[in-house]
Computed example of a mutant assay.
Amino acid sequence: MATFQLELVSPEKLLLSRQVEMAVIPAAEGEMGVLAGHAPMIVTLRGGVIRVTENGQVTDRLFVAGGFAEVTPERCTVLADEATPVTELSRADAEARIRDAEADYAAASDDTPERRDAAMAKLLAARAMLDAAEAA
């Protein structure tokens, strides 16, 4: 099967850079599969799990809290706000994030629509983190 270069970059470091068969990324519009030869595009990411497939098997599962992905026929570059291997996620940390995000969302109720949207995105990412931690 054809491969493409997948790079996953967080503010701290380069987490992944190698040839893969497929990556499923959590685009804002829904799960998006990327294969070699994909049409060029830039998408916004929501909180969720990136699944990397090599030799017909899912080899890596990484939680991202949001960010962007640039897709070309030869490469997919993910610029994540935060990225963590699913095996390193903690249910307690995710639950604490949910509590903080719920408080931020409640505090933003009288704020601008942009701030409410950002608070909701943070809450949804925290819930996705809990889902990923429980599934690990």
Rank of each mutant, 00 (worst) to 15 (best):
T3D: 06
Q5E: 13
S10N: 07
K13H: 13
K13R: 15
L14N: 15
L14C: 15
L16N: 03
S17D: 15
R18N: 11
R18L: 13
Q19N: 15
A23K: 00
A23R: 02
I25F: 00
I25N: 01
P26A: 01
A27G: 15
A28S: 11
E29H: 14
V34K: 02
V34A: 04
A39H: 13
M41Y: 09
I42M: 10
L45R: 04
R46H: 08
G48C: 05
V49M: 02
I50P: 00
I50D: 00
R51T: 01
R51W: 03
E54P: 00
D60W: 01
R61W: 00
A65M: 06
G66L: 05
G67Q: 01
G67Y: 01
G67S: 04
F68Y: 14
A69R: 02
E70Q: 15
E70V: 12
P73F: 14
L79Q: 07
A80I: 07
D81L: 04
E82I: 11
E82P: 08
T87K: 11
S90I: 05
S90M: 05
R91M: 14
A96V: 01
A96D: 11
R97W: 10
D100H: 13
E102R: 09
A103K: 14
D104T: 11
Y105E: 12
Y105H: 13
A107H: 09
A108K: 01
S109P: 06
D110V: 12
D111A: 14
T112P: 08
P113Y: 07
E114R: 14
R115D: 08
R116C: 06
R116V: 07
D117N: 09
A118I: 07
A119G: 06
L124Q: 09
A125W: 02
R127L: 06
L130V: 05
D131E: 13
E134V: 14
A135H: 09
A136K: 15
